[in-house]
Design a protein around this nucleic acid. Structure first.
Length: 387
RNA sequence: GGCGGGAUUCCCGAGCGGUCAAAGGGGACGGACUGUAAAUCCGUUGGCUCAGCCUUCGAAGGUUCGAAUCCUUCUCCCGCCA
């Protein structure tokens, strides 16, 4: 087999299974399931998607399952009210953007890609659900590490959550998956998919798990809720800056998982990271955007200057009339006036390069100047004579 | 069905009649520093017409000079026993 398909793979289970399937010579159906609970993909998702792409390139067929049904039910994980079930429109919209973003990595052609929605088969009669539910015991599901922990700690586990792995397994039945991919956290679910397939008299899928990419904090896995992610659709400047904030220790892993190669041996950490950031931006926005993002970063964060382009804000007032800056800041950056006042007190507000000491400033002193809050927020002021 | 525990500011979590806009941690934000939006250190973190005032502690009532803290009802959540 092509050794490439196992590059970066953590588990390939059962051992030798993928090889046996590849040896048949027929194109394999390689499944990935995603719940469109959030519209945005981040770099962590691209690790698995990249592997799918390798399968496509090797002549296999990727079956991308959009979990519109599972997402609609909503993640039931305890915790009262915070996660309401996504509405139908939301899910549909997310599914669309999700696909569009996934196609930045996957090849979008009917021979090597099939996109399915699991509402197609999961919206099933009770009777069918019973059949599915009979395939697995409570003990089996409770073995899963996170359930086991919660169970032990007397934390709530809803029945619906227990059903989740089964539904995911049924997806494999419905699309007759030969292989299913997922992050290492999916190992249990992927393996359970085999049991479900067997119960339905189908050949069992091979299971491949891929490493979870650490987030920009270098410690926890990348996830939107932890805020340590670099989004596929983030603007170039954001992608570049977020990547540079990655701790040096995590750089090797990002190189391996995202670029498929180690950092240049001669390069300093600084340069290696800049290269990494540039390549990431280039992948999603093109090389020119990458160059521009780097220039922007140097200008704003290394040289501490205002960016070349920024939004403008009109301020009413003439001559020596005093303008209340907290109001302007609040308007421009969405702060409350109290927050803005505190910012000023803390020396976090500048006009051009001068720290603003007083909340009220003469109107004449504002026109054309750059109002800056902290390191990252800028706005150019334009004076307009009050009517 | 019975018994018990709980709902606090962005999150977790202390408070259990006044000294509470409410400890502590996380996060976020600002400052210093830096190759960095990292790390570290310092500070801030309900709103406002800001030395004062207003609105918060699941909801609605009540007791009290005074309630996040006590009482009543309600809503929701969790565990245990069956």
């Amino acid at each position: 087999m092509s050794p490439d398909l196992l590059r970066n793979v953590v588990d390939a289970l059962p051992s030798g299974e993928l090889e046996r399937k590849l040896a048949t010579g027929r194109p394999l159906r390689v499944k990935l399931g995603v719940d469109p609970t959030s519209p945005d993909l981040h770099l962590g998702h691209t690790v698995v998607l990249g592997k799918l792409r390798e399968f496509q390139d090797a002549g296999h067929k990727v079956v991308l399952i959009i979990g519109d049904y599972t997402a609609r039910i909503g993640d039931p994980s305890g915790r009262s009210k915070e996660r309401p079930a996504a509405s139908g429109e939301e899910v549909d919209a997310n599914a669309k953007t999700y696909q569009a973003q996934a196609f930045r990595i996957l090849r979008d052609d009917p021979d090597s890609l099939e996109v399915r929605f699991n509402s197609e088969w999961l919206d099933m009669p009770m009777e069918s659900l019973f059949r599915l539910a009979r395939t697995t015991t409570a003990a089996q599901v409770l073995e899963r590490d996170d359930f086991a922990k919660r169970f032990k700690a007397n934390e709530p586990i809803s029945l619906l959550e227990l059903l989740y792995p089964l539904m995911q397994g049924y997806d494999s039945v419905a699309v007759k998956a030969d292989v299913e991919l997922g992050g290492t956290d999916q190992k249990f679910n992927l393996l359970l998919g085999r049991d479900v397939q067997r119960a339905y008299g189908l050949p069992e899928q091979a299971v491949l798990t891929l490493p979870l990419l650490v987030g920009t904090d270098g410690v926890k896995k990348m996830s939107k809720s932890l805020g340590n992610y670099v989004g596929v659709t983030d603007p170039p400047d954001e992608q570049y800056g977020k990547t540079l904030s990655l701790p040096d220790e995590a750089m090797g892993e990002w190189y391996r998982l995202l670029l498929g190669r180690p950092p240049d041996t001669g390069a300093s950490p600084r340069d290696a990271k800049r290269t990494l950031a540039r390549e990431i931006v280039a992948r999603f926005h093109g090389p020119e955007a990458a160059t521009a993002a780097e220039a922007h970063f140097d200008r704003v964060f290394v040289q501490r200057q205002a960016p070349e382009e920024m939004e403008e804000r009109t301020v009413d007032g003439v001559d020596n009339e005093l303008v209340h800056l907290p109001a302007v800041l609040s308007d421009a950056f969405g702060l409350s006036r109290s927050e803005a006042r505190r910012l000023i007190q803390q020396g976090g507000v500048r006009l051009d390069d001068e720290v603003v000491a007083q909340p009220d400033v003469a109107a004449a002193a504002l026109d054309g100047r750059v109002l800056r809050a902290g390191k990252r927020r800028f706005v150019r002021l334009r004076l307009r004579a009050a009517v």
